[in-house]
Computed example of a mutant assay.
Amino acid sequence: MNRGLADSNIDYLVWMNKAEAERTLQDWRDGHRLELVTESTTHTAAARVEYRDAVNSVHYVDTITGLNIDISAGSLPTAEAATTFLHRANLMN
């Protein structure tokens, strides 16, 4: 994650809770707006990137490790910046 955070002033919250990560991923799969969710190739991790009117939020969960990340709205200027962060942090493949 340090590589993803190195170039930006990103406000984020990180915590570990496997049950919550599993529940969140299932909610995303069952919910609406599936186009906002990108799952890893193993389907054990996913990110939900919402971007509208220059306000964005990024949520990431990993059901194996229990890693949960919430990045504050507005910390990343565009959806592309959010995707770049996820790749540079080696969270999404």
Rank of each mutant, 00 (worst) to 15 (best):
A45E: 13
T78E: 07
A46P: 11
H43K: 09
A45S: 15
H43G: 06
H32S: 13
A45F: 03
T24K: 08
T38C: 01
P77F: 04
A21H: 05
R88Y: 05
H87V: 11
V58P: 04
D30W: 04
V61P: 02
V61F: 02
P77D: 14
I69Y: 04
R52I: 14
S75Q: 12
M1H: 04
E50I: 07
R48H: 08
R23D: 07
R48M: 11
T78D: 11
Y51D: 10
S72I: 09
Q26E: 12
L25M: 15
V14T: 10
M1V: 14
S75P: 15
N93S: 09
A21S: 09
S8K: 13
A46K: 08
T38I: 05
A46Y: 03
D27K: 12
L34W: 00
I10R: 10
N2K: 08
D53S: 15
E20T: 06
G74V: 04
V14I: 12
Y12S: 10
F85W: 00
A82H: 05
V55N: 07
L67Q: 14
R33I: 04
A82E: 11
N17P: 00
E22R: 07
R52W: 14
I64L: 12
I69S: 08
A89T: 08
Y60V: 03
M1R: 05
H59F: 10
D7S: 12
N56I: 05
V58T: 15
M92L: 14
V58I: 11
M92W: 00
R48C: 11
Q26C: 03
R48V: 01
A6K: 15
V14W: 05
I64Y: 05
E50G: 10
A54S: 13
T83E: 07
R48Y: 04
N68G: 01
E80C: 03
A46W: 06
D7V: 02
L86V: 09
L76F: 10
Q26M: 13
H59Q: 13
A54D: 15
R3M: 08
N93E: 04
R3G: 00
A79P: 03
T65D: 07
R88C: 01
A82W: 09
D62F: 02
E80K: 13
L13I: 05
V37W: 01
D30S: 14
T78S: 15
L13T: 09
A79E: 15
N93C: 01
E22L: 04
D62C: 03
N56M: 14
P77A: 14
N93K: 02
I64G: 06
T78P: 05
L13C: 01
N68F: 03
R88A: 12
I10K: 07
H59W: 06
V49E: 00
S8I: 12
T38N: 07
L5F: 06
T84S: 13
W15E: 09
I71D: 06
G66F: 12
I64Q: 13
T78Y: 07
L67M: 12
N17I: 00
N56H: 10
H59M: 08
M1E: 00
D11G: 11
Y51S: 09
A73T: 14
H32G: 13
